[in-house]
């Protein structure tokens, strides 16, 4: 059985602090504007949320695509710190609580854009990239012509960093995927040297790969991905 191939039609990425690149699809802005979201909704989004919503608006201006969002840690600033507030018997902020769920960014985007399609949030213990492609493939085989896949992550709060092997860099990438036109994303077994160097792929690794600066390898799945025209 052959797996349906996935094509990359377009992408956007955000990585503040990255050395500026002349690729217009990459933003290195410290504070994204979130201009695609009305001010009354935007006030609830942090920099990551604003960046993701603006990327989605550019890739799916008619708000008609199924949206997938993967993040290993989600919004740790909200979720993990909230646990400490509970332990200290401090009342929780309802607004922060409402945005602590894993699909909060897509939820705000869906309200702002009017997108009524499926929204799916994924966490996969370091296999987020592979899981995103698996889910996207499922939707495409099921008849969707395009799917948007978002991968984002940010450092966990300082008091949790000792539990993290490789700290996440704040970054996000959004890809419009299809079965048709675009560059083909192919996976193959990773080589031993690749596996020896690899760590769980982060959004910043996907950005490196999209820019042709580094291979993309998932050690847990033993896979490496390539982009071919």
């Amino acid at each position: 059985m052959t797996m349906a191939s996935i094509s990359l039609q377009d992408w956007r990425a955000w990585q503040p602090g990255r050395v500026s690149h002349d690729d217009p699809r990459l933003s290195v802005a410290e504070h994204p504007k979130g201009a695609s979201v009305p001010a009354m909704l935007r006030r609830r989004l942090n920099d990551m949320g604003r960046a993701v919503c603006d990327m989605l608006a550019e890739l799916d201006p008619r708000a008609e695509c199924v949206l997938l969002h993967a993040s290993r840690h989600g919004d740790g600033e909200r979720t993990l710190e909230m646990l400490y507030a509970l332990a200290e018997d401090t009342p929780l902020s309802p607004a922060r609580f409402s945005l602590s769920v894993h699909n909060a960014m897509l939820g705000v985007h869906s309200i702002a854009s009017g997108n009524r399609r499926s929204l799916q949030a994924i966490a996969a213990s370091g296999c987020e990239w592979a899981a995103l492609l698996s889910e996207a493939r499922g939707y495409l085989i099921d008849g969707e012509t395009q799917v948007i896949a978002v991968f984002s992550d940010a450092p966990v709060p300082a008091r949790f960093t000792e539990h993290i092997a490789i700290p996440a860099e704040i970054s996000a990438v959004a890809l419009r995927l299809s079965c048709h036109a675009g560059k083909t994303i192919e996976s193959q077994p990773a080589s031993q040297p690749q596996l020896a160097q690899a760590h769980a792929p982060q959004p910043s690794d996907v950005i490196d790969w999209l820019l042709g600066e580094a291979p993309l390898v998932c050690p847990t799945r033993g896979l490496a991905w390539s982009l071919t025209s």
């Binding site: 009354m40 009342p91 902020s93 309802p94 607004a95 409402s98």
Partner: peptide, 13 residues
């Protein structure tokens, strides 16, 4: 002003 239900809870707090 256009506040919503989450704002009402936040304001109550």
């Amino acid at each position: 002003l256009g506040l919503d239900s989450i704002d009402a809870l936040e304001l109550g707090l």
